[in-house]
C-alpha cells in the first residue's frame, strides 16, 4: 500500500497538482469510479466480511456493568488509533522528515529553497495516507461488511470527521471521528434509520457554529 501511494502520487497526483489544488480532487474521484467498477467486474457486487476469519476477537466483549458491554474489537481499534495518532504526532513535531512535510504543506516553493525535495515529500505523504486508509479499511472489513461500492459512504464519514475536528488539526480529527460515531449511535437509539442522519446533522451544526454562528442563518437577504 505504501508503494501504491508512492506510485499514485508520481503518476496521477503530481500531474494534476500542476493545474491547481482542485484537480487532484477530481482526478482521485474519477479514479475511485474506475476502481469501483473494476472491483464490481472482478468480485461481483456480493457483500463480504473479514469478520468470519479473524476468530474470537470479532465477537469477544467485556461486561462492565449490567447494561454496558465493551467489545474487544472496538477497544483494539481505539488503541490502534491512539497509537497511530501518537506516532504521527511525534513524527510531525519532532523528526526532520516531519518538519519537511509540514514545511512543504505550508509553502512547497520555499521548502525547495531550503533544500527539501518537495516532490519526494509529497509522494511520501501520499504513501503514508494510503497506508493509513488501508489500515482503516482492514478494521472496517473485520467489524462490518463491505462491497465494491462501500467506499463513498466511508469517504463522507472521513470528510465529516476531519471538518468537525478542524482542517489540519491532527488530534481534532480523532475527536471529530469519535463525535461523529457517538452522534450516529445516539441517533440509532432514536430510530435505526436516523443513525447516519444524526451524524450529518452534527456536521452541519459544527459548520454553522464555526462559520458565523447563528447570524449565518439569520443574516437578512439583500
Amino acid at each position: 500500500m505504501i508503494a501504491l501511494g508512492y506510485v499514485l502520487h508520481l503518476t496521477v497526483l503530481e500531474r494534476s497538482l500542476k493545474s491547481g489544488v482542485l484537480t487532484p480532487l477530481l482526478a482521485t474521484f474519477g479514479l475511485s469510479i474506475v476502481i469501483q467498477n473494476l472491483l464490481l467486474l472482478a468480485f461481483s457486487p456480493d457483500v463480504r466480511s473479514l469478520g468470519g476469519s479473524t476468530g474470537a476477537i470479532t465477537t469477544a466483549s467485556w461486561q462492565v456493568t449490567r447494561g454496558l458491554t465493551v467489545s474487544a474489537l472496538g477497544m483494539v481499534i481505539l488503541v490502534v488509533a491512539l497509537l497511530l495518532f501518537g506516532a504521527l504526532h511525534v513524527f510531525l513535531s519532532s523528526t526532520r522528515a516531519g518538519w519537511a512535510m509540514r514545511a512543504t504543506a505550508e509553502d512547497a516553493d520555499a521548502a525547495e529553497l531550503v533544500g527539501i525535495d518537495s516532490r519526494g515529500v509529497y509522494a511520501r505523504a501520499t504513501a503514508l495516507a494510503v497506508a493509513i486508509a488501508a489500515l482503516g479499511g482492514l478494521f472496517l472489513a473485520i467489524r462490518s461488511v463491505f462491497d465494491p461500492i462501500s467506499g463513498p459512504t466511508q469517504l463522507i464519514f472521513a470528510f465529516e470527521a476531519v471538518v468537525i475536528g478542524g482542517m489540519g488539526n491532527l488530534w481534532g480529527t480523532l475527536i471529530g471521528g469519535i463525535a461523529l460515531g457517538v452522534a450516529q449511535t445516539l441517533g440509532a437509539q432514536i430510530h435505526p434509520q436516523f443513525s447516519v442522519m444524526a451524524g450529518h446533522l452534527l456536521f452541519l451544526a459544527v459548520l454553522i457554529v464555526r462559520f458565523g454562528g447563528g447570524r449565518a442563518i439569520l443574516r437578512p437577504v439583500r
Partner: peptide, 17 residues
C-alpha cells in the same frame, strides 16, 4: 516566506545542511 506554524528553531533546523 517562512513556514508560519513551524517554530523559529524548526524553521532554522530544517534548513541545516
Amino acid at each position: 516566506r517562512l513556514f508560519p506554524t513551524l517554530t523559529v528553531e524548526e524553521n532554522l533546523r530544517i534548513a541545516a545542511a
